[in-house]
C-alpha cells in the first residue's frame, strides 16, 4: 500500500492504518529496535509502541516519508526503553559505544547553549549531503540505525579498520563544521 494512502488513513483516524503500517514496516522497525534492545520480545513491543505513537501524532504531523518517520519514533522509544532497562547498571555494549561516539562530537561544547533541535538536524543534514557517499552511509548506519560495526563491514564489504577510521573522521569533520557555524564553542 502506498505510504501517502497509509498517512491519509492515519489522518482520517482509520484504524486499519496501524495494520497497514505494521504489515509494510514491521520487519524494518524491528531491525532498528533490535539494534538497540537485542531482545526480540522487547523489540516487538517497541514497534507496537512506535505505531501507537504514530497514531497519536498523525495528525497533526503529516510525514512525507512514513518509513523514516516510523523509524525515528522506533529509535527514540527503543533508546528510552533501553535506558530504563539498564538504569544503574554499568553496561559495556556496542550501543553504549555508539552513544559515546555521538557524545564525543559535542564534547567541550557549551552545555548552556540552546539550539532548536530541528535547526541542528538541518545543519547535520547539510553536512552529510556534502560528504562522500560511503562515509555518509556508514555514519548513518552507525548513528541512526545503531548498526554494530561488524554489520556495517558486512553490508559494504569494508574492513573493520576502514569503517572505524571513516566514522572517526566524519565525527571530527562534523564537529569542526558545527563549530564553524557556532553550534559548538
Amino acid at each position: 500500500m502506498d505510504d501517502h494512502l497509509i498517512v491519509q488513513m492515519f489522518r482520517d483516524r482509520d484504524e486499519d492504518a496501524l495494520a497497514a503500517a505494521k504489515e509494510k514496516y514491521e520487519k524494518y522497525l524491528t531491525y532498528i529496535a533490535n539494534n538497540v534492545l537485542h531482545d526480540r520480545g522487547e523489540s516487538e513491543e517497541c514497534v507496537s509502541d512506535a505505531l501507537l505513537a504514530a497514531w497519536e501524532s498523525i495528525p497533526p504531523q503529516n510525514p512525507d516519508n512514513l518509513k523514516t518517520y516510523l523509524g525515528k519514533l522506533t529509535r527514540e522509544i527503543a533508546i528510552s526503553r533501553w535506558r530504563k532497562n539498564t538504569s544503574g547498571k554499568r553496561i559495556r555494549s556496542d550501543l553504549v559505544r555508539s552513544l559515546d561516539e555521538i557524545e564525543e562530537i559535542v564534547s567541550g561544547g557549551d552545555p548552556d547553549s540552546e539550539f532548536e533541535e530541528a535547526e541542528l538536524s538541518r545543519e547535520i543534514s547539510r553536512f552529510l549531503f556534502s560528504v562522500d557517499e560511503d562515509k555518509r552511509n556508514v555514519f548513518i548506519r552507525r548513528y541512526w540505525f545503531y548498526d554494530p560495526v561488524k554489520n556495517i563491514c558486512r553490508r559494504y564489504g569494508f574492513g573493520k579498520s576502514k569503517v572505524l577510521m571513516m566514522l572517526k573522521r566524519t565525527r571530527d569533520d562534523l564537529a569542526r563544521y558545527l563549530k564553524e557555524r557556532g553550534y559548538l564553542k
Binding site: L120, S121, Y143
Partner: peptide
C-alpha cells in the same frame, strides 16, 4: 541533543543509507 538531532536528519539521507 546531538543524538536526537541525528535522529531528525533529512529522510532522504536515511533512505539512501537504507
Amino acid at each position: 541533543v546531538m543524538r536526537r538531532a541525528i535522529g531528525g536528519i533529512d529522510p532522504r539521507l536515511v533512505e539512501s543509507a537504507d
